[in-house]
C-alpha cells in the first residue's frame, strides 16, 4: 500500500509534516470541575476532571502530595466496527498508566497534600492517536479546573512509512506497521520530554528524525491549546463584565436579546 503518493500527499491528503485539524471546546460539562472536548481530525476525546478534593479512601491518602486517579474508556461506537470493550482490557490499562504518568509529572501535586484529583477520559471517536488526544484533552480540563501545573503538556505522535517521516498518524497509517513514536513535552521548559512510547523497531538516525518531528508537532499543539485557553479566559471575563454592568439581571438580559435581534436584521 502506498502511504505517500508521488505528489507527496498522504492518504487523507495531508503533507507529511502536517497536523490534522485541531478543535477544542472547554468547560463542556457543568457537573465536572473542569472539562474539555478535544479533536484531532476524526479523533474525538472528552475529558472531565473532578477535584482537587479530599481523598476518598484513607488508605490511599498521601501526606505529601495529591494522588491522581485516571480512567480511560473507549466508547463502543468509537471505532468503525461496533465493539464493546471493558475498562479492564490491556490496551486501556496501558494508556491509562501513560496518561496518569504524564499528568503526575505536570501537576504540582506537592502543593495539594492529602487530596485527590480524578480524571476521566472518554474516546468518542477513534482514528489513531487516541493517547495523544487524551493527554491534550486532560490537560485542557485540568487547566479549566485551575489545578496548578508546572507547564503546558502537549502530546503528539509521529511515524515513518514509505521512507518518510509522517506527523500525527491516523488509523490507516497507524495500522501500516511502521514505527509509531508518541511524545509528550513541556514546551516552556526547553521541550522536556515527559512521555516517550514507541511501537516497532526503527534505526537510530530515523528515530531522531521522527522524534524531532513529533516534538515540533507537540509545540504546535501546545500553541493551539494555549490560544484556546486564553480565548476561553477572555470570553469568561467578558461574560462576567457584562453580567456586572447589567446588575438588574432579567432586565439586562432582555436588552441584550433585543440588541442581537437588531443586528440580525441589519445583516
Amino acid at each position: 500500500m502506498e502511504y505517500v503518493s508521488p505528489e507527496g500527499l498522504r492518504l487523507d491528503g495531508r503533507r507529511p509534516k502536517e497536523l490534522r485539524q485541531l478543535k477544542a471546546q472547554l468547560d463542556v460539562l457543568s457537573t465536572a470541575d473542569g472539562s474539555a472536548l478535544f479533536e484531532m481530525g476524526n479523533t474525538k476525546v472528552l475529558a472531565a476532571v473532578f477535584g482537587p478534593k479530599p481523598t476518598e479512601l484513607r488508605s490511599q491518602e498521601d501526606e505529601k502530595r495529591a494522588i491522581i486517579r485516571c480512567e480511560y474508556a473507549m466508547a463502543a461506537f468509537s471505532t468503525g466496527e461496533r465493539r464493546r470493550r471493558g475498562k479492564s482490557d490491556r490496551r486501556a490499562t496501558e494508556i491509562t498508566k501513560a496518561i496518569r504518568n504524564t499528568l503526575e509529572q505536570t501537576i504540582m501535586t506537592e502543593l495539594l497534600p492529602r487530596s485527590q484529583i480524578d480524571i476521566y477520559v472518554q474516546v468518542l471517536q477513534a482514528d489513531g492517536g487516541t493517547r495523544c488526544a487524551c493527554i491534550n484533552a486532560a490537560f485542557l480540563a485540568l487547566a479549566v479546573a485551575a489545578v496548578p501545573m508546572r507547564d503546558v503538556v502537549a502530546a503528539c505522535a509521529a511515524g515513518y512509512l514509505d521512507s518518510t517521516a509522517l506527523l500525527d498518524l491516523n488509523y490507516m497509517e497507524d495500522a501500516g506497521g511502521g514505527p509509531d513514536v508518541v511524545v509528550a513535552v513541556h514546551p516552556n521548559h526547553s521541550n522536556r520530554v515527559v512521555l516517550l512510547q514507541q511501537d516497532n523497531r526503527v534505526a537510530v538516525e530515523t528515530f531522531e528524525e521522527v522524534m524531532e518531528l513529533a516534538v515540533a508537532g507537540c509545540r504546535a499543539v501546545a500553541d493551539f491549546m494555549r490560544g484556546r485557553l486564553l480565548e476561553h479566559t477572555r470570553a469568561l471575563a467578558a461574560a462576567r463584565a457584562a453580567g456586572e454592568d447589567g446588575g438588574g439581571g432579567g432586565g439586562a438580559a432582555m436588552e441584550g436579546d433585543s440588541g442581537e435581534e437588531l443586528e440580525d436584521d441589519e445583516y
Binding site: 504540582m108 487547566a143 496548578p148 501545573m149 508546572r150 507547564d151 503546558v152 513541556h186 514546551p187 516552556n188 521548559h189 494555549r226 485557553l229 486564553l230 479566559t233 477572555r234
Partner: peptide, 24 residues
C-alpha cells in the same frame, strides 16, 4: 496580561513569587 501554565513571568531575583506561580 493573560498567561498559561509554564509561562515565564519574571526573574526570581527581582520579584517575589505570589500565588499561582512557582520558581523554576
Amino acid at each position: 496580561t493573560l498567561c498559561t501554565p509554564g509561562e515565564r513571568l519574571a526573574l526570581a531575583a527581582e520579584y517575589d513569587a505570589g500565588s499561582g506561580t512557582c520558581v523554576r
